[in-house]
Amino acid sequence: MTARIDKVITSGTFELDGGSWEVDNNVWVVGDDSECIVIDAGHEAAPILEAIGERALLAVVSTHAHNDHVNAAADVADAKRAPIWLHPDEAPLWQMTYPDRAPDGALAHGQIITVAGTDLQVLHTPGHAPGACCLYAPELGVVFSGDTLFNGGPGATGRSYSDYPTIVASISDKLLTLPSQTVVHTGHGDDTTIAAEAPHLQEWLDRGE
């Protein structure tokens, strides 16, 4: 039996560089009836914990450390006695939300996370943030893209710790090389597919922000 995917939408504010924006976040719970992981525990712990239920939580996996993707991570992890995993390059952003607490484990490119007999491969995709990562589950035919790739193009850059050429290179090298039918489960908004986004690579390159 392969893992199933549950989606929880939480709402709150994203804050960076003195700005504040109201956002809805996609929180992904991947597992079976006995165990799961949470990808990007943002805003509200209660609905995430409700989705987990009585299952064992193996880890809270953070694709990056913008506050809207991690500000419920500690409450969820502590409630289920689970670790929080994050790429080490996210330390400056993580410390904006958790100045007195470090993540419990480090994500690395190529790392395999196994839950409910299903492997998820960590892809380091910097650009939106220096330690941004995606999680590719070939058996499920999906990639969890965080804020690296959305329905309609790359994630936002132009704020601290982000870089447009870097995110386009990450998408080109790490995501658009996945099978075209791969479903992209994003950090905000609707799903897309690799096939739907790949034809736009040249216009993203030409944009050169």
Rank of each mutant, 00 (worst) to 15 (best):
T2V: 05
A3F: 00
R4E: 04
I5D: 02
D6F: 01
V8W: 00
I9L: 12
T10N: 08
S11G: 03
F14Q: 07
D17R: 04
D17G: 06
G19N: 12
E22A: 15
N25R: 15
V27Y: 01
V30E: 03
V30F: 08
D33G: 14
E35L: 01
I37Q: 14
V38Y: 03
V38G: 06
A46I: 04
P47I: 04
L49D: 13
E50D: 14
A51G: 13
A51Y: 06
I52T: 08
E54F: 07
R55D: 06
A56S: 14
L57Y: 12
L58W: 04
V60N: 06
V61M: 08
S62E: 15
S62P: 03
H64E: 15
D68M: 14
H69S: 12
D75Y: 05
A77M: 08
D78Y: 02
R81S: 15
P83E: 01
W85G: 00
H87L: 04
E90T: 07
A91D: 15
L93S: 12
L93D: 10
W94C: 06
Y98H: 12
R101S: 11
P103Y: 13
P103N: 03
D104Y: 11
Q111G: 10
D119Q: 13
V122E: 07
V122C: 06
V122I: 12
L123N: 04
H124E: 09
T125M: 06
G127D: 14
G127I: 14
G127M: 08
H128M: 09
H128Q: 07
H128F: 09
A129L: 09
A129C: 11
P130V: 06
P130A: 09
G131T: 09
C133P: 02
A137M: 02
A137G: 14
E139Q: 15
V142C: 10
F144G: 09
G146V: 10
D147N: 08
D147Q: 05
L149C: 02
F150E: 09
G153K: 08
A156Q: 12
T157Q: 09
Y161Q: 10
Y161E: 10
D163F: 08
Y164E: 13
Y164K: 13
P165M: 02
T166G: 03
I167N: 12
V168Q: 11
I171L: 10
K174G: 00
L175K: 05
T177D: 02
L178N: 09
L178S: 10
Q181L: 03
V183E: 11
V183M: 08
V184T: 01
T186D: 02
D191R: 05
A195V: 00
A195P: 00
E197G: 01
E197L: 07
E203R: 14
L205E: 15
D206Q: 09
E209M: 08
E209C: 04
